[in-house]
């Protein structure tokens, strides 16, 4: 048995990405387990208050691999979340490290109400 041969062509399965969502007054943090992906294969979009995530996990071995136990398949992780419009999308940060994507969405800080001084006689 050998692992040489043409690249794997088996189709990907689509799976809902497991995520953690943590909120504070300052920001919303979304963390997704996406093992085996890469920065180039992850797509995050915001559209009308909805965050959409799509990450591809490519094949890790060749088509001719002699598997004894197989629990992984080429996967496309997807997730869609309605998060609203209260975030500063220009300040969103995204970091992919050790197979975990972390998104930080800062909350737009509402301007404090200002008292208008009234002058008069």
């Amino acid at each position: 048995m050998s692992s040489t041969g043409s690249p794997k062509t088996s189709p990907s399965i689509e799976v809902t990405a497991p995520i953690d969502v943590i909120a504070s007054e300052q920001e919303l943090v979304i963390r997704a387990d996406l093992p085996g992906s890469s920065v180039e294969l992850i797509d995050v979009r915001f559209d009308e208050g909805t965050l959409s995530l799509r990450a591809t996990i490519p094949p890790r071995q060749l088509e001719s691999t002699a598997y004894l136990l197989r629990e992984f398949a080429p996967t496309v992780y997807t997730r869609s979340l309605e998060i609203g419009e209260q975030f500063d999308l220009d300040q969103v940060s995204a970091d992919y490290e050790s197979g975990v994507l972390t998104l930080r969405l800062p909350v737009v800080q509402a301007k404090k109400p200002r008292r208008v001084p009234i002058t008069g006689g």
Binding site: L68, R70, S98
Partner: peptide
């Protein structure tokens, strides 16, 4: 963790998904 186990003539290959784990 999910694992794949495969073999070639010379070796056994084990692949494990460990997202967020400090190696």
């Amino acid at each position: 963790p999910a694992v794949d186990v495969s073999e070639t003539v010379e070796e056994v290959i084990v692949i494990a998904e460990l997202p967020g784990v400090d190696p």
